[in-house]
């Protein structure tokens, strides 16, 4: 299970936490109204995911099986608190706009799912790499969804990027087209659900096309725990 290429492929595409496992739907749908928010939450999740995977992998030999879940949650909660304090200190505007969803990273199923399914069974380097790839896959979906919704909703991209990246980033905001009236549906949760459904449909179409193109080549199947609980 130390095949890094396979881990990367699983995290970024085949077993993508957002598109395939449908984990962490709550932040996925709630904060993706703009690219900036999506990117901020995605990066925070990424950091926590890498950190928790490393720590869980380090302590996996010493934690009794019976109480492993509470221990993992404690580790994740500690990391989330660190990230929350960091964002509060260095990106206060983003801290305000992410609101409750920042501390709620603790309950993000992606993180506990990877800790349980991968990090607790693998060595530190592959666990860290898995956390990185899962985090990047999750962040990518957040950003794409945020881009779709922001573009449809208010016709901009990277609006409010200075909240995340500092004052220089305010020039990043792109006014793609000018709308007199924002398309509220795209900004509201129903729009997120519809956009998410379209993204999953798009992924399935691409998978079908790939499948059709090379029918003889059988993909190697890796047996891994799939967690389908939505959180």
């Amino acid at each position: 299970m130390t095949n890094y290429r396979e881990i990367a492929w699983q995290g970024l595409w085949k077993n993508n936490p957002g598109l395939v496992q449908l984990l962490g739907l709550c932040p996925l749908l709630a904060v993706t109204a703009t690219v900036t928010n999506a990117l901020g939450l995605g990066l925070a999740t990424l950091i926590v995911l890498v950190g928790s995977n490393i720590l869980v992998s380090l302590v996996r030999e010493y934690v009794p099986k019976e109480i492993r879940i509470p221990v993992f949650v404690m580790i994740i909660a500690a990391l989330v608190t660190c990230v929350q304090l960091l964002i509060n200190a260095y990106a206060y505007g983003l801290y305000l706009s992410l609101g409750i969803f920042l501390p709620l990273i603790v309950t993000n199923c992606v993180i506990i799912g990877r800790a349980e399914a991968f990090a607790s069974r693998n060595n530190v380097t592959s666990a860290a790499f898995d956390g990185l790839m899962m985090g990047v896959g999750f962040t990518a979906i957040l950003v794409v969804l945020g881009g779709m919704r922001e573009l449809l909703g208010q016709g901009t991209l990277f609006d409010g990027a200075e909240l995340l990246l500092g004052d220089w980033a305010s020039s990043l905001t792109i006014q793609v087209f000018n709308v007199d009236t924002p398309f509220l549906l795209a900004m509201l949760p129903p729009g997120a659900f519809i956009a998410m459904g379209l993204l999953i449909a798009l992924k399935n179409v691409i998978d079908d096309k790939i499948e059709q193109r090379k029918p003889q080549q059988e993909a190697e199947i890796i047996a891994r725990a799939r967690i389908t609980k939505v959180g």
Binding site: T181, F183, L184, L185, A186, L188, P190
Partner: peptide
């Protein structure tokens, strides 16, 4: 409903 939710003013 889509229109009413998205463009309440109009």
């Amino acid at each position: 409903v889509l229109l009413l939710v998205s463009f309440p003013l109009q």
